[in-house]
Structure formats: structure tokens, C-alpha cells
């Protein structure tokens, strides 16, 4: 009886917030708001600045304009082209390498599988600045021995980007196959389908979502790669993130804001597409 009353009193006390818990509540919302500001304020400002009719950042601007958007592609045409050329090889290439590997990691069982999985995902964890330096020095050494002109070549740049994109493909293919019920495959096999037919008609359609996600994520990974690429470019062969970095060292103006905004729109639409039609992005973080 006493205990029950005690509980009642305590429940009543917690229902009416005292000063201390109000303070805690206020602190919570303050940090919450601060967190959102830290994440989104720079992005919002970038979009805002991209419409300024000024050559520099001057608040408030004389007028607003969309002219900077028409100057983005002419100004960054060459690095953009290189970035897209690299992506055009690295994305399909990483699918060719990563999809079979992901399949084997899920479907087969052998000794050392854990080690292979760790190895294949390692490029996601090794600092890319070290990888870039290492790949460049390796290319120089191979060139010294074989005479093949590798250092600063397009092939080495693409090989480096393949290294960055392939683990994404492996990870997403594994994620799309884990927990997949194999009974449909077994049914197809028992009805007389050959293994390749089973793969083509049953397994592949089941992996469709994972494959599209892998394609798009590997594109995003190669499109934004900066640290490793720093070491693999050569005069006349620069990628977009590096051109942006070089530009930003000396200017901060509406043109760069417009470029960043376009990038935001491109990546935002890719992510929205994945989220809507392929795989709930929330599931990937888990």
C-alpha cells in the first residue's frame, strides 16, 4: 500500500517538470538545433550564394541571377569530362569484378572466406591519401622496371578508382543477397533448369535492386574521390573534385557555389532515385 502510494507520488512528480528537467529539455533542443544548423546551414548558404549577381561574396548582393549556372560547364568542361571518362570505365568495371565476388562471398563456404571478405572491403578503411601515394610510387617503380609509361597515366587513375568503387559493389551485393530465400532457385533446379539458367532467370532478378544501388553508389564514389586522385592526375588530366579544390584555394565566388549546387542536385537526385525505386537508404546504415 505504502509502496503503491510512493509510486503514485513519484509518477506525479515526473509529470510536472521541475526546473532541472526543463533545463535538460532546453539543452537537448539547443543541441538538436545546433546539430541541424552545423549540417545544413553551409549547404543552404551555398545554394543562396549561387544566385548572387556579384563577382565576389558581397552581402547583400546588388541583384540575383542564374547566369553562373550557364558558366559551370564551360568553366569546368575538361575536368568534368575526365571525371566522367573515369566513371565510364570504373563503374562497369567494378560491377564486373564486384558482383561475382559478392555472390561467392554469400553463396560459397571455404576456409579463409572471412580473410578474403576483409581484404575486399579493406579499400573502404585504408586512408586514401596513403593509397594514392602508394599507387603512384608503385606505378613509378613498375615503369622503371618494364618501361611502360604508367606514372600519371589514365590507366593507373582508372585502376585506383576501380579499387575505390569495387568494395561498394561487393558490400551492396552481399547486403542484397543475405537473407535471400534460396527455395525459388531449388525449385527451378528441380524442374530441370541448368545452373546458368537458374542464375539468369531467378538469382539475377532477385539481385536487381542491389545491382542498381551498386551501380549508383560506385558512380558517387568515383565522382567525388579526391585524396587518392591527387597523386594520380597529371597535367591536362584533372578530375572535377581536384579542379574545385584548386579553384577554392584562391577564389570563393558564386561560380563555385553554383557548381557545388549542381553537384548537390545531381547526387541528391541519384540518392532519391535509389531510395524511391531501389532500396531504402536507411537500411544501408544498419
Amino acid at each position: 500500500m505504502d509502496a503503491a502510494r510512493g509510486g503514485e507520488v513519484r509518477a506525479w512528480r515526473s509529470a510536472v517538470p521541475d526546473r532541472g528537467s526543463r533545463l535538460v529539455g532546453a539543452g537537448f533542443w539547443l543541441l538538436f538545433a545546433g546539430g541541424l544548423v552545423l549540417i545544413f546551414l553551409p549547404l543552404v548558404l551555398t545554394v543562396y550564394l549561387s544566385f548572387f549577381d556579384e563577382k565576389l561574396i558581397i552581402f547583400p548582393p546588388r541583384a540575383y541571377t542564374t547566369q553562373w549556372y550557364s558558366e559551370v560547364i564551360p568553366h569546368f568542361a575538361s575536368p568534368l569530362l575526365t571525371t566522367l571518362e573515369v566513371a565510364a570505365i570504373a563503374v562497369p568495371g567494378s560491377l564486373l569484378l564486384g558482383v561475382p565476388a559478392g555472390l561467392a562471398l554469400v553463396r560459397s563456404d571455404f576456409r579463409g572466406k572471412g580473410a578474403i571478405a576483409t581484404l575486399l572491403l579493406a579499400p573502404l578503411t585504408v586512408p586514401l591519401i596513403a593509397v594514392g601515394l602508394a599507387v603512384y610510387l608503385f606505378a613509378v617503380s613498375v615503369e622503371e622496371v618494364t618501361g611502360a609509361p604508367l606514372a600519371g597515366s589514365f590507366y593507373v587513375l582508372v585502376a585506383g578508382h576501380l579499387l575505390v568503387t569495387t568494395p561498394w559493389v561487393v558490400r551492396l551485393v552481399v547486403a542484397s543477397l543475405v537473407g535471400y530465400d534460396r527455395s525459388a532457385e531449388e525449385a527451378a533446379a528441380s524442374l530441370g533448369a541448368r545452373p546458368l539458367t537458374v542464375f539468369r532467370r531467378v538469382t539475377l532478378p532477385a539481385m536487381r535492386q542491389g545491382l542498381i544501388a551498386a551501380l549508383l553508389f560506385s558512380f558517387i564514389a568515383t565522382f567525388g574521390e579526391l585524396e587518392m586522385t591527387l597523386f594520380l592526375i597529371s597535367p591536362g588530366m584533372t578530375t572535377l573534385p581536384i579542379a574545385l579544390l584548386g579553384y577554392l584555394k584562391y577564389h570563393i565566388d558564386p561560380l563555385i557555389a553554383a557548381t557545388t549546387t549542381l553537384q548537390m542536385v545531381l547526387i541528391g537526385s541519384i540518392l532519391a532515385f535509389i531510395d524511391r525505386f531501389v532500396i531504402r537508404l536507411g537500411q544501408l546504415v544498419r
Binding site: I39, F40, L41, P42, L43, V44, L45, T46, L49, L56, I57, I58, I220, F223, G224, L226, P241, L244, L245, L248, I252, I256, A257, T260, Q263, M264, I267, G268, L271, A272, D275, R280, L281, G282, V285
Partner: peptide
């Protein structure tokens, strides 16, 4: 909620250079 998750994923995939532009606008002289 899924739109909120999406909004948080967007900056993640934008790359450090692009994300820094906003802070340069905020913090630079002037």
C-alpha cells in the same frame, strides 16, 4: 522520416570539397 534520412545522406556523398564551400562563405573575411 525517410526523407530526413535522405537529407542526411546527401551531404555524406557530396565530398569534402563541396561541403567546405558553405563554410568558406560563412567564415571567410567579409
Amino acid at each position: 522520416k525517410s526523407a530526413m534520412v535522405l537529407a542526411l545522406m546527401l551531404p555524406l556523398f557530396m565530398g569534402a570539397t563541396a561541403r567546405t564551400v558553405g563554410w568558406m562563405i560563412l567564415l571567410s573575411h567579409g
